[in-house]
């Protein structure tokens, strides 16, 4: 694939990559750094990309691997913002459009619930249900069999269902 074509295609996935990066890092600045690193690595390893395969999945795979390699250490620490202060209740949805109180409450609940899912459950859930990737693509990104992806998504939904009920009662969903 020509460099220009590669670059153009890669750039088309910027918003989707940034979106996942925000959910992974829970921090806008770190999400930006993560995405920049993802593109830097994608460019460096562009010769490994096989034309005809899905670039979106390939880019997501690089992003996730970069996150796991370089950012995940921090996940084991208490959530700390880049300013060094706890960011436990910092809203992840601050860029969301204006909404009424009920919707905002639902967003906050969803945000809290998603945070409580571990990365290996949260990522396939978001990739499949929010980004609309196929299970095969998610499996490639997660580097595991499709059956495992199905199982993780199923368990993530069950966990999410339980958490949302805890927050808002059965009527919340």
């Amino acid at each position: 694939m020509a460099d220009d074509e590669f670059r153009q295609q890669a750039l088309q996935h910027l918003d989707a990559l940034y979106n996942l990066a925000v959910y992974l890092t829970r921090n806008g600045s770190e999400a930006e750094d993560l995405v920049q690193e993802t593109y830097a690595r994608a460019l460096r390893f562009s010769h490994r990309f096989q034309p005809g395969t899905y670039m979106r999945a390939w880019m997501f795979q690089i992003l996730r691997n970069t996150f796991l390699t370089f950012y995940r250490l921090r996940e084991r620490e208490p959530a700390i913002s880049e300013a060094g202060v706890p960011d436990g209740e910092a809203p992840m949805f601050h860029h969301a459009p204006a909404e009424d109180g009920e919707s905002k409450g639902a967003h906050m609940d969803l945000e809290r619930a998603l945070r409580r899912l571990s990365e290996e459950f949260r990522t396939p859930l978001l990739l499949a249900e929010v980004e609309g990737l196929s299970l095969e693509e998610v499996a490639r990104i997660m580097d595991c069999p499709v059956g495992t992806v199905k199982s993780r998504i199923f368990r993530a939904k069950e966990r999410l269902r339980g958490l949302l009920k805890d927050y808002g009662g059965p009527g919340r969903i």
Binding site: R7, A10, L11, L14, D15, L17, Y18, N19, V22, G28, A31, E32, V35, Q36, Y39, A40, L43, M92, F93, H95, A96, S103, A106, H107, L110, L114, L125, L126, E129, V130, K157, L160, R161, L164, I173
Partner: peptide, 30 residues
Amino acid sequence: PDEIAQFLRERVARHQAPTRLRAAVVETLS
């Protein structure tokens, strides 16, 4: 029906890449 999937699609906020990030990525790529 998969209510959780529907709930996610409707409720999960989409974060658009900031303009400065787009510019930085374009620079990285070129």
